[in-house]
Design a protein around this nucleic acid. Structure first.
Lengths: 338, 338
DNA sequence: CTGAAAGCGCTTACAG
DNA sequence: CTGAAAGCGCTTACAG
């Protein structure tokens, strides 16, 4: 059943079996040129009986068409990346492109060189880099003059690539301010992992918001994005009587932190306010419903793809991003006694 | 900046600029044959100055190698599919393959014919179909004699494709039984959307468990996998005094249903027990922690890929799937008064 | 270590 | 409507 290693049937085989010339087979394949119905039938039958499938490599070679869009995503199942990828796939398919993905650890682009080369070896029109921080010198070199678009997660301005923006900085800044405005003396933070020494952008923005407001900057708790680490960080904070408000690097972390607060015998938001970022679908379903900052990854994915494709003049369907602070039940003024 | 439409530089251009023959350029590219260091340098410089990138189509054509694995996934961001995809990508990359994805609505494989053809036109070793129900006659025809592996989500036995199993049927059956064993008179169900008239396999298994136990079979509430629909279904159930136990088609639906119960002024599990399926990371973090059935999608993804690759004799790293009922805080015996 | 030749499977003018 | 020829960009024997 597995069959031997023999080469699959080619257009020449089909032509022979059907008793026609090679170009004729090609014509029924592409449909670009009229072919007599009888002939067409015979060719179709031959293809079927041989189990013929056109060789895409040969096709791509001769046509010079690049039917693949490369997506360089992260090595995680984080909400935002998942969402962007799904939307890119959908939009790309609609535009007649196939999506090939490579997951990269931004801190270790070096390591994935072979995967990258594999991607670049395909007939790709361009590459969408879902995280601008992945787009370092090494990657830039590999990509050469290939069309690229990327997603910026901060407010950097000197970007030399076509990009769309998911403004993490603004999100973190506003959430922190919301908590401060509620009357909290300061806001604690459970941070996303930092890479290469630099703090995550959401952490930097949180710090800035505190400084700008003249609030003390407490020590940061770091996680590795995992629920487990988030719960540990949350537990430590929950037992600290000084903590009245926690800004979490994303919604998932916030969920975990709320659990820890519950386990510590305290209540959200009566004892401690909690807020996140992302507004993932579950945020509104949690008890208490999570105050968070909505980020529009659906939009970002489609927009980034269209930015890449623009070179090929397609119509935009991305619409306008929907984002902003969403105040729900998990944040409130600090308890009077505190 | 966008640059013209002129063909990108080829190996011939590099050869000319470097003052060597075409095969020599190829040699420094592949590294299969020794080349003098000076020559190598000159070639590298020429490649750089021209912005040369090897044409993967030509390479695939001449080598007859198929460096791509196709993955046919679902048109949703459901936990299981996301997980399987991420694991497949990781394992494939490790084995030197690129992953190309096509998201398909199983009820409408017809519609995505062009996307499928695009995929099949690439140099692919084979295709992993993440949902066996997608693998219908139409798809089977398209795939021809291409290697395929799939993931079975029930207990079907007459499968004619290499497959791994994520036993949804057993999961639903056991969860329902768990609730029954707790003393509930019956178990209500918030179901996943059914396609083509047939109920989802988790729903069928739930029904079977009730029948086997001689329990009455209440009317099903259907969702479209969305949190919103789940909350509505949950609200209807929460207000029904006859409802003491709810089995939800997956964890996300369970979260939403718990929210609805909370809003109805009732408590989980004191008034109503709730259980799901999947055991996604947040299940243990919810308050109350969700009783659920753990399904090992990480394993399934890797295993399905390896099944496909086995034809190429790779080593397995999939390990043993970890699954089973996980009893947490959201289920309890019915209230005595009820 | 390097070059000239052949060929991978297909499509596109070019003729009829 | 159909066939014979050329060529897409690369790699692999084959000679030196």
């Amino acid at each position: 059943m597995p069959g031997g290693r023999k080469r699959p049937p080619t257009i020449a085989d089909v032509a022979r079996v059907a008793g026609v010339s090679q170009p004729t087979v090609s014509r029924v394949l592409t449909g670009n040129t009229p072919v007599r119905d009888v002939t067409k039938e015979r060719v179709r039958a031959a293809m079927k009986s041989l189990g013929y499938r056109p060789n895409g490599a040969a096709r791509a070679l001769v046509q010079g068409r690049q039917p693949i869009v490369g997506v360089i995503t992260r090595d995680t199942a984080l909400h935002g990346y998942t969402r962007m990828l799904a939307n890119i796939e959908s939009r790309a398919r609609q535009a007649g492109y196939l999506v090939a993905i490579v997951a990269l650890d931004p801190a270790d682009v070096q390591k994935a060189t072979s995967a990258l080369d594999l991607l670049l070896g395909q007939p790709i029109v361009g590459v969408v880099v879902l995280d601008y921080t992945t787009y370092d010198t090494r990657l830039k070199d590999s990509l050469g003059n290939l069309p690229v678009s990327t997603v910026i997660h901060g407010d950097q301005t000197d970007i030399d690539v076509p990009h769309v923006r998911v403004d993490d900085r603004r999100a973190a800044y506003e959430v922190t301010n919301h908590l401060l405005a509620l009357g909290h003396r300061t806001v604690h933070h459970v941070a996303a992992p930092s890479r290469s020494g630099e703090p995550h952008i959401r952490e930097a923005a949180w710090r800035q918001a505190l400084i700008d407001a003249g609030a003390p900057v407490p020590e940061v708790r770091r996680t590795d994005w995992s629920i487990k680490a988030a719960r540990e960080a949350g537990a430590a904070l929950a037992h600290d009587p000084d903590v009245t408000a926690i800004f979490c690097a994303n919604d998932e972390i916030a969920f975990a932190v709320m659990r820890s607060i519950h386990e510590a015998g305290k209540r959200v938001p009566e004892d401690i306010s909690v807020a996140g970022i992302d507004d993932e679908p579950l945020a509104a379903a949690w008890v208490p419903a999570l105050t968070t900052f909505r980020l529009d990854f659906d939009w970002a994915g489609v927009a980034a793809l269209e930015l890449l494709m623009e070179l090929d003049e397609l119509h935009s369907t991305a619409g306008t991003p929907s984002y902003g602070l969403v105040v729900r039940e998990s944040t409130a003024p600090p308890a009077p006694a505190a």
